[in-house]
Simulated assay, not measured.
Amino acid sequence: MSFPPVEPTALWQDGWYGPANRLDSPNFGARPTGACIDLVVIHSISLPPGQYGGPEVQDLFTNQLDWDAHPYFSQIRGLQVSAHFFIRRDGTLIQFVSANDRAWHAGQSAYRGRPQCNDDSIGIELEGLEGDIFTEAQYVQLARLCQDLHGPYPIAHVAGHEHVAPERKQDPGPGFAWERFQKLVNFPDSYFP
């Protein structure tokens, strides 16, 4: 099933969300013809792991990370990835890729009977560590963003990276309060794993 391009609104212009800070990533591609953008994938990330507030995540998603700045970075040297959105601990929202395009966030994945989740999903990274708790500001921003995505895109599923790539990934992990988020976003039970 193919959907027409999202019409410009006060919130959305060419897949860019007005309330977000825009920081373009080169790590994206076109979605396959007929892709139905009906899945949100929630991730967690911090660089170096467990450290918050620095520019490293943005630098990674824009291919500007100094690989020699921290010993951990040697493990991810040369990685070219992105997400559509990144929500910092204080709720600040950054967008790296138009929601109309395919960000490189899920890798080898499958969900709701479809492989390659990057093709038809929107990736949202929360600043955090799998197993850690997330802030109230992050839950509020995530719920608002998901509600606003639900208008122009036929969102019908919300899952964690751990659900779409269970053998490889564990984020956002047990620290993410799915029930709390579900109440905030007010989506039906059928949307969730």
Rank of each mutant, 00 (worst) to 15 (best):
C36Y: 02
E167C: 15
D120P: 00
L145R: 00
V81W: 08
A10G: 07
L93A: 03
P188Q: 13
G53T: 05
H43I: 03
I76E: 14
G131Q: 14
R168P: 01
V140D: 03
A177G: 11
Q64G: 11
H105M: 10
F192G: 07
G34Q: 01
G175K: 05
A99C: 08
P172E: 12
P48R: 15
I94W: 11
E56V: 01
V6Y: 15
A103K: 03
T92F: 01
P49K: 15
D24L: 01
Q13K: 10
E56C: 06
I124A: 06
G50N: 03
I37G: 00
A10Y: 10
F181M: 09
F192T: 04
P115H: 14
E56L: 02
Y191T: 00
R168V: 02
E162Q: 10
T33G: 12
V140G: 01
P193K: 15
Q138L: 01
I155T: 02
R114H: 03
W178F: 07
F61N: 12
A103N: 05
P8C: 11
N118K: 03
H163D: 13
F28L: 02
H157Q: 04
H43N: 07
N21G: 06
I87V: 06
I42S: 02
V81F: 10
E179A: 13
L184D: 13
S46W: 01
P154E: 00
E7M: 12
R89L: 15
Q58N: 11
L79V: 08
A106P: 02
A143V: 02
N100C: 07
G107T: 05
G123P: 14
F96R: 12
R112E: 01
G173C: 11
V57M: 13
W67T: 04
A159Q: 07
F28W: 15
P152M: 10
P48D: 14
A69C: 06
D120S: 03
G131W: 08
Q182D: 09
A35L: 04
S121Q: 07
Y111C: 11
V57W: 10
F85G: 07
N118S: 11
L65Y: 04
E136G: 14
G107P: 12
G131F: 00
P26I: 15
F181H: 11
G107I: 09
V185E: 10
H43Y: 07
C146Y: 11
G173R: 05
V164R: 02
L79A: 07
H150K: 08
P166E: 00
P188H: 13
R180C: 14
A159T: 08
G123D: 04
E179G: 08
L23S: 14
H70G: 05
G128I: 06
S74I: 06
P174C: 15
Q141S: 07
L126F: 05
N27R: 12
I37R: 08
D90R: 05
H163L: 04
G50V: 03
F134L: 12
N118F: 15
C146R: 15
G131A: 08
P55D: 02
R102Q: 01
S25R: 11
P172K: 04
R89V: 14
S25A: 10
R88T: 09
I133H: 01
A156N: 00
E167G: 14
Q75T: 13
G173L: 12
P49Y: 15
I133K: 01
